Every structure is written in C-alpha cells, then in structure tokens.
Amino acid sequence: MNLISMSIWTLENHCFIVYTTLLVTFVVFTLFHKKRMESHQHRINAKVEKLTPIGTGGRERDFPDDSDGDPILTSAIPEDTPHIPYKPLRRSDDEVLQRSREYYELMAKRRTVRMFSPEPIPDEVLDNIIMTAGTAPSGAHTEPWTFVVVQDPKVKEAIRAIVEEEEDLNYRKRMSRQWVADLRPFGTQPPKPYITDAPAILLVFRQTHSWKADNKKRMHYYSEVSVAIAAGILLAAIQYCGLVALTSTPLNCNSKLRDLLARPLNERLELLLPIGRPHQDTTVPDLHRKTLDEIMVKI
C-alpha cells in the first residue's frame, strides 16, 4: 500500500470513527433526555395528583377509583330509582316572551353593592333563597355545596378580621399592580366593613367529595361548575326577593375561615356574600353591560 492509499485509508477510518462516535452520542443523549423528561413529567403528575382535590372536574380525575384502589361499582343514587313524569305548566309563546322580558328587566337591575343597611332579614327568607340555590343541577346529582349563614355579630367580626388581614397582604404583596389598578374604579380596599354591616353573611363551600353509607368515598364530578351554577341561581333569588349582595372571593382565607366555622377538610370556600338591603346612601359605578351582539353568536 503506497503512502497516498494509506492516507486515504486512515482518513476514512477517522471519518468512520467520528461518525460512529457522534451517532452513539446522539442516541445516548436522546435516550437520556427522554428518560429525564419522563421523570420530570412523573414528578409534575405526582404534584398535580397531590394538590388537585378529588372531584374538581380536572381531566386527571374524570374517571377516578375509590380510595381502596378498587373500581367504583355502585352509585350513591340507587340504580332502580324510578323515573316520574315531568309535566311543567305549558305557556303560550306570548306568555314565554312576556316572562322572559320581565325577568331580564328585573335581573338587569342587579348590582353589586358595598354598603348595607343593618335591617335584619327574616330567617325564612334566607332559608328560601338557599333552598332555591339547592335546586341547581350537579354532576351525577352529587349536590356538592354547603351554604353557611352567619348572623352572629362576634362571628362576623372574626370573619372580617381574617379577611382584612389576608387582603392587606394581597394588595401589598400578592396581587399585581395591574390587578390593583383594575379594581380602583370599584372602590375595593383591604378594609371590608360590609362584612360586619350586612345583617347576614353567606359563605358558599364546595365539597370536593363526600362519603357513602358504607363509608366509601363518593366522588363529586364537576363540583366547581356545579357550585358556580348554584351560586348564579342564588344571586338571582336574592335579586328576585328584593335584596342585594356582594360577590366576594376572599383570597388565601380558605383554611382559616374553614377552621373558624368548623367545616370539614373536604370543603373549600368559593364565595363570601354579604346579603341584605342596600344602605340609603349606597352608590354604584355607572357601568354598562355588553350588548347582545357582543355576548351571543347564532349559528
């Protein structure tokens, strides 16, 4: 073999070695990266599994098993539950149209207020609006809601103290500057005098799950949506009977208020609503709602 042939042979060998080395390195790196991503995803899934309450409607929990690991085979509602005729009062098109207009005109006057009259509300009125909220549909008829009514002045003071302490931190440290700026037109601040001024405070808790008669966990499917629908019906009932409310979502207060009100760990606070009559000096921002064309699409 002459010198030129040896040089070519050596170069080809070097190229082959380099190519092989690069190929092996690429394969090893790919496998390592895949393994690392799988491990990372496993850790994320584990955290989500730990932090996401069972039955919140999250995709990971759409088809859950019970706490023993065995498939859920029986429903809390008996399979042989009879179906009964449903025959609501039939109304003419003219009646339906008239009632739709009247109800819209009533609900269009609904406003959120922050100044309440201390006039008491009859207990039967509170009972009726909560029973009305309880007519809401829910996933698999689990009815995942608890409505806590507070009228005791001392308990309202304790609730206000907890909310104001957390709200002060929210406004100073937790909420973005844009968020705080967006709230200025509505006059919201850490002090919450309406909590003690209103004759009644209604706290809406969402049950993430419950238990069956055999002490097995009962899943609450789409509990967030179910409670949201119930809250909407509740607000409509409050408006219908001539009262007003403030829809408040007290950030970072869930555990403290749950402990104060002796609620179980499977319940999470979703809304805090002062309810009553508006104070005679109440004012509200001059806001305008979106038009029908802006909120509806017909296909």
Rank of each mutant, 00 (worst) to 15 (best):
D123G: 14
I72W: 01
K47C: 15
N45P: 08
S100D: 09
E157G: 07
Y194P: 01
R36I: 13
M6G: 14
K109T: 13
I238V: 12
L22C: 04
I238N: 01
K154I: 12
T81Y: 00
T21L: 11
S92D: 02
E157F: 08
E164D: 08
F29C: 11
M175V: 09
S176Y: 03
S67W: 04
I77K: 05
L261A: 03
L269S: 00
D123C: 10
M1H: 14
A108T: 02
E267C: 02
R111H: 14
P88A: 02
T132A: 08
M219E: 14
W145C: 03
D281F: 03
P278D: 03
Y240T: 15
K35F: 12
S248L: 12
V27W: 05
V148W: 03
K216Q: 07
M37Q: 15
E165Y: 07
R289A: 01
Q189C: 10
S176V: 09
P191Y: 02
P137H: 06
S117G: 06
P85K: 04
Y194I: 03
T208S: 10
F116G: 02
P53V: 03
A236P: 07
L271W: 02
A198P: 04
S7M: 15
T282M: 12
I159P: 01
S176A: 00
D68C: 09
D123Y: 10
H209Y: 08
K298N: 10
D70S: 13
Y221G: 01
A76I: 13
D70C: 13
K256M: 11
I44W: 06
K256D: 11
F116S: 05
V284A: 00
H141Y: 15
T146D: 12
F26D: 09
K35A: 10
L106T: 07
W179Y: 09
P153G: 05
K173F: 14
I121P: 00
F63V: 08
V284S: 01
H209K: 06
L243I: 00
L261I: 05
S255Y: 10
F186E: 04
R59F: 14
E105I: 06
I72K: 01
L106N: 10
E79A: 14
K87I: 13
I195V: 04
R90N: 11
L3P: 12
D293E: 09
A108E: 09
D94F: 10
P153Q: 04
L126R: 02
G134N: 11
S67L: 15
Y19M: 12
